[in-house]
Amino acid sequence: MAGLKNLKKRRRVQVILVAAVALALSTAMIGYAMRDGINFFRAPSQVAEEPPAPNETFRLGGLVEDGTLVRGQGETITFSVTDGGASIPVAYTGVLPDLFEEGQGMVGTGRLIDGVFQATEILAKHDETYMPKEVIDALKEQGVYEDPNG
């Protein structure tokens, strides 16, 4: 009987060790996946006040400023994003979402390089049901946001 007790104890220790290794491995993988840092959201006014470092990836959100959308020669598109308090120029190479247009909300992921937000991803936001709360809060703070529901 003593041998059976030792076997159970050894098995329990093995299970705990395997679980500890799995936990350490998953924690390391999550850390590696987030090595670029969490994409913090910023409004144009926040970017203008405290420009992030060129190597910092972050999310920029606001309204596409009227009269600034230029579809260039080639695939690079430039426009400005505003929250009413500040305007940040954006350059993006790629295909824009169908709903993307001036006066509409957008959120982009990228980096601020030499004063221009170099976007790697652009999402168009057509109304407040799809617009992140942070964008709405930033627009309300600048007095630009109008609630479509009254």
Score class of each variant (00 low, 15 high):
K140R: 10
G31E: 10
G143S: 09
Q118C: 09
S87T: 12
Q104K: 11
G150T: 01
T109A: 11
P54T: 06
Y92A: 07
E65Y: 02
G110E: 05
L60R: 07
G72I: 02
D36F: 12
P89T: 03
F40V: 14
L23D: 03
L25P: 00
E102M: 00
T120S: 15
E121M: 15
A2P: 08
A22G: 01
G84D: 01
G3V: 11
L69P: 05
L99W: 07
V70T: 11
G105D: 03
R10T: 06
R35I: 08
A53C: 12
T93K: 12
V135F: 03
T78F: 00
Q142H: 08
G3Q: 11
G150D: 00
R71I: 15
V18Q: 03
V116H: 06
D66R: 01
L69Q: 10
V13S: 05
T129P: 00
T129S: 12
K9H: 05
M29G: 10
S80V: 04
N39R: 12
I38P: 02
R11H: 15
T129N: 14
A91I: 01
Q73N: 14
A33F: 05
P54Y: 06
T93S: 13
T109N: 04
M106N: 05
R11G: 08
A48R: 15
G110V: 09
